[in-house]
Design a binder for these strands. Structure first.
Lengths: 219, 219
DNA sequence: TAGATTGTTAATCGATTAACAATC
DNA sequence: TAGATTGTTAATCGATTAACAATC
């Protein structure tokens, strides 16, 4: 059974499913239906079933999905069944905040090295890690088997850092800088640029005077 | 002049256009074609033209778009032509990092108040703002005309904070906590949850040995 | 003018939703 | 069994892309 090409939209929903499933497990709920998941996530049950079916048959007809089994499967799909080492570049407030998120451990993602270009930062400690000089990037990526890089430097430095990550052999980048980065095709880049979300949020604010309720939804 | 319903995908691209246009302006480029914009953003030129055409006729046939005019128009559409006041809840590392982003000023978005529930934080200074008790949320929102709230508290506290933001009269929320929040329909909520981006990034990493389409994943 | 480029309609592509046989 | 729910195909919906007349 070869996998059809799976769209990004599908892949992006998997972590969301995982998140709810983890909550269900914490509540000691054993089994869940696509119906129920759909309600909790505001998604169509058929979509959830279809998403999961791309990867295998994880449910049981008439019953639903076993929570722990589905968690296990989604974690496999997302490659979270192995530890994934991450490097973080940019030891500012944002970088420190990310380092402190211990959520990584649960998901087998771990920031194992922190880098910065500024002498003032180098040598300081974040979460028991010593901030390293950029010179150490490539050797560290190689010796610690780091596969993902997180960029938390200012926008002007972001492309430069991305280039260095690429040539150090990283496979994926999560970019927090509000900048459009060019990387070779084989390197996957995801954006965590909240400015887009914030500015587009403004669009939906009421305009004081004119409330256009021409698209009012009734259910 | 009542506009057709505009999809979220379109609205979400506007800040991206704005970003590139700002860069062009800094380079003192006066005029840009959809072709050119498309190249810079890896988007189809027809899509860019169509997106913009939802809001008006901003270009000139045979010429393209005047950069400064288009910036002005997009800022109007996104309601960034007026100052938008923002409250931030959660004065941890992430909250501090966001406060320090001075990008807001350029875009007329400004964090004008910071709140935290923990006595240790209250009264401390961030970016010249005193961190306030949550008790002050509603009166401050009203007196400073705050319309957007940013949530940077831990996941377990996020729903509680969201509720308080809603009842204080906020119109939009940007949520950084990895939690699914329930808010009334009239409040717009956007997610800046990078964990989704990070976990879905893992999916695209190479599987070491097998990256061919004819190998199925079996346990 | 001739070349370039918009705004917009039509065509295509892809993603979501509905429907239902299979089956627990 | 009868009710519930999956996996999957077919139908629908929406978004992207192509094409082109209008026109700067």
């Amino acid at each position: 059974m070869k996998q059809a090409k799976i769209s990004e939209a599908v892949v992006r929903r998997l972590p969301v499913y995982l998140h709810v499933l983890n909550e269900l497990q914490r509540s000691e709920i054993q089994t869940v239906s696509s119906q129920d998941l759909g309600q909790r996530l505001d998604l169509n049950p058929a979509q959830i079933r279809k998403d999961l079916a791309y990867f295998g048959e994880f449910g049981r007809k008439g019953i639903g999905y076993e929570v722990s089994y589905l968690i296990e499967k989604i974690r496999q799909i997302l490659k979270l069944d192995q530890q994934l080492n991450v490097a973080l570049i940019g030891a500012g407030n944002l970088g420190q905040a990310l380092c402190n998120y211990n959520m990584y451990i649960k998901d087998n993602m771990k920031i194992v090295a922190v880098f910065d270009a500024h002498p003032a930062k180098i040598g300081s400690k974040i979460n028991n890690m010593t901030v390293l000089d950029m010179e150490h990037l490539k050797p560290t990526v190689e010796s610690l088997d780091i596969r993902i890089g997180i960029i938390t430097v200012p926008a002007v430095e972001a492309q430069n850092v991305a280039d260095k990550l690429v040539s150090s052999g990283i496979e994926g980048i999560l970019n927090f800088a509000p900048a459009i980065l060019k990387v070779p095709e084989q390197v996957r880049i995801h954006h965590a640029d909240f400015t887009t979300e914030l500015l587009s949020l403004a669009y939906y604010l009421e305009n004081g005077a004119d409330n256009n309720d021409d698209d009012k939804v009734v259910d």
